[in-house]
Design a protein around this nucleic acid. Structure first.
Length: 448
RNA sequence: UCCUCAGUAGCUCAAUGGUAGAGCAUCCGGCUGUUAACCGGAGGGUUGUAGGUUCGAAUCCUACCUGAGGAGCCA
């Protein structure tokens, strides 16, 4: 066994090995799995870019190397050197005929065995679980989604305006916030950057923010995290139709990007990509009242009761069952607009044609994935906004700066918020949001 | 906060009132093309915690802890 990688020019990423057929290369990585059969031993090495089957014959390597191939533990870090050859029996179509092996660190009793594990055990070992193929595939999709968001807005001339994490008061006055001590003052972790973006869009025209947001609600479902990432565009002069179009364009570009760049990852996740291929403009549009009509159908009622879901109440918000019903026969997302003004946030613009309805939209993903986007046109009239703040019994002083935007050159404007983990879950076809973020924060989950 | 279900070997699970078991992982042996390899052997347990019922409790009862799914709220 060699002590130093002498005479080696450098290592090769596994994903680039196809061009090295017939050549001797050095690969650095970790032992993912191993198998043996008498005088032949197989090591599966991963390096973050792919998986490589390494074959060691007892007659072709030193006795020390062959013995090491039998005893080296799962997830040991190592360097392997050998000839790359085409081999149909190897996963990926190529394998390495081992010449030299150097174990950098020998791992003993790696906890995540190749068998099945429960969610609690996996989440307790998230720092190691990241090495497994499924989290790896999903987080690579997340990477493309995040980069896709930035490219989309940059290409359209949006300016990134980072909103603060510490806020002096509740943004919307509804959600429960995480409270923290700020040099003796109470401060809260932000639940949305929107209120800070509205002034910025009056400065830059088109802006967006992209970062973590926090909700202290004790939600205990597969669709909730206490810390999640949200992208929020805000556009001056934009009214509801433009907001709908922007949301459609963003979602379509992200789906296309994942289909283009995450083919292998979607395969690992066994995602039915034919469902994603169908995502295109225009999305299905319906008003709240049209959606309500569907949900009040007796046949739907009966199904809702049979599943033990709470019945839809006209004028109220949709539940998880309702969202699934509204999208179950659709091959594209549904955009539901014009919700009742009084079940929506205080800043949403009432429809001038019917002030009991708000100029807002929820985008519901197909296949039961539910709401991925919520947005609206914002109230731009100072007196109306002030009245709404008082109706909602919000602290007027805290919103002084927010009201001032309506005093100096106010214009119609609007935007939306998109939950990154919900999009990643939908595209990756996984049920639980906790898999769509590297280190999920949930009720009773702060480790690791 | 509420409803439902669960907690047994490192992991995934079986044992329904009568001696606590299997597969994987680990260790030993066998096999020159494995694919979650396979075959043989070994070690591995205060059955979540506390109390109760019983001749006898993993199993039945009570409380608590932890987790899962759902509701409410939302992205």
């Amino acid at each position: 066994m060699r002590k130093e990688p002498s005479g080696m020019k450098g290592h090769t990423d596994i994903r680039d090995l196809a061009s090295s057929e017939g050549k001797e290369v050095l690969v650095r990585g970790w032992l993912y799995a191993k198998r043996e059969s008498g005088k032949i031993r197989f090591l599966v090495v991963r390096d973050g870019t792919g998986y490589l089957q390494v074959v060691a014959f007892a007659k072709e390597v030193s006795p020390e190397v062959f013995a090491a191939c039998g005893t080296v533990g799962q997830e040991s870090s190592l360097e392997v050197r050998g000839i790359i050859r085409r081999e149909p029996r190897a996963p990926g179509g190529f394998e390495m005929g081992l010449k030299e092996l150097r174990i950098l660190h020998s791992a003993v009793d790696y906890p995540l065995t190749p068998k099945e594990h429960g969610p609690e055990f996996l989440l307790d070992h998230r720092h190691l679980w990241l090495r497994s193929s499924r989290p790896h595939a999903l987080l690579r999709i997340r990477n493309e989604i995040c980069q896709g968001v930035r490219d989309f807005f940059y290409d359209r001339g949006f300016v990134l305006i980072d909103s603060p994490m510490f806020t002096p008061a509740a943004c919307e006055g509804t959600s429960t916030l995480f409270e923290t001590d700020y040099f003796g003052e109470k401060a809260y972790l932000t639940q949305s950057g929107q209120l800070y973006l509205e002034p910025a869009c009056m400065a830059f025209g088109k802006v967006y923010c992209f970062g973590p947001t926090f909700r202290a609600e004790k939600s205990k479902t597969r669709r909730h995290l206490t810390e999640f990432w949200m992208v929020e565009p805000e556009v001056a002069f934009a009214e509801l139709p433009e907001i709908l179009e922007l949301a459609e364009d963003l979602v379509c570009s992200l789906v296309a990007r994942a289909l283009d760049r995450n083919r292998e990852d979607l395969k690992v996740l066994e995602r039915d990509t034919s469902r994603l291929e169908k995502i295109s403009k225009p999305f299905h549009r319906m008003t709240y009242d049209e959606a309500a009509k569907i949900l009040e159908d007796p046949a739907i009622r009966a199904r809702s009761d049979a599943q033990g879901a709470p019945p839809f109440t006209p004028g109220g918000d949709f539940g998880g069952f309702d969202e699934t019903v509204l999208t179950e026969n659709l091959d594209r997302p549904a955009m539901v607009t014009h919700y009742p003004t009084d079940i929506k946030a205080f800043y949403m613009q009432p429809d001038p044609a019917n002030p009991s309805r708000a100029l807002c939209v929820d985008v519901l993903a197909p296949e039961g994935y539910g709401e991925i986007i919520g947005g609206s046109q914002r109230i731009h009239d100072h007196d109306l906004l002030l009245a709404r703040i008082r109706e909602h019994q919000l602290p007027e002083e805290a919103f002084k700066w927010y009201l001032e935007i309506r005093k100096y050159g106010t214009v119609p404007h609007g935007g939306f918020g998109m939950g990154v983990e919900r999009v990643v879950s939908w595209l990756g076809g996984v049920k639980h949001l906790r898999e769509a973020i590297p280190y999920p924060r949930m009720l009773h989950r702060l480790y690791p």
